[in-house]
Amino acid sequence: MSSSPNRATPLGLRISAIAGLLFLHLPLALIFLYAFTTEERSFQFPPPGYTTKWFGVAWSERPDIWPPLYLSLKVAAIATALALIFGTLAAAALSRARFFGRETISLLFILPIALPGIITGISLRSAFDIMGLDFSIWTIVLGHATFCIVVVYNNAIARFRRLSGSLIEASMDLGANSFQTFWYVILPQIGTALLAGGMLAFALSFDEVIVTTFTAGQQSTLPIWMLSELIRPRQRPVTNVVAVFVVVVTLLPILAAYYLTREGEHTGGSSK
């Protein structure tokens, strides 16, 4: 939508855009740098020396890292699976029908991420208290799935809206029932959007800390482990090693989700 083909970019704009992007990315680069420092008691800059020993220490000498990691992966997997089912159902229903209260319901599905996480956290916690539920992995999952549904819903509804109605009608005309139409026609069309939504939900759950502090009992997920390391640091570079790991684990699904939704932009049958 550029207004004239050979318009030059204003210098001031270019500088402030680049400066803004640097501001967004340099802090993360520091996380990587400090994973290699020899100084473990302070955040001295520049690091007095460089070593790779912390990766070994994190791997073999810190057994406290592993249980939170497993718990986080488990919670994220279950929450994502639940979110995929409920989020897709909600998106399918709200994209196909117009009915009274539809706007309110779609607002309701956005609410868990529109309101601050602390509200979700404390209300879930007090509800668990009232119902006498003991804190366990399932209370964590309950909290996570609630906002993961929103992520899947958002991804799925965008795709459902682009889905061509004529394909579904054609499938029905050719004698397929609703389930066959869903399996052979709709699912292949929305598959990449669901995969993308699922990956984002996984990343979100794997990283969540505010709601988790309220819904976890004695167990700690990886973010909670990290939070306690931030408040009471032991070997600081080890925290950095884990942070580097977390960055890589969350970024890969996001890159994948990006490519999936980008290639899926041209949904079959929509180009009429």
């Binding site: 802090p27 993360l28 520091l30 996380i31 955040f43 800059f45 990283d207 973010p223 942070a243 969350t250």
Partner: peptide, 24 residues
């Protein structure tokens, strides 16, 4: 998108490194 989706705590931690008295 990458900073948006990278870990919240890691981002806070990065600033702990930056703002520390002996930091960058």
């Amino acid at each position: 998108m990458m900073p948006l989706w990278s870990s919240y705590l890691v981002k806070v931690y990065a600033w702990k490194l930056i703002l520390a008295k002996e930091g960058i």
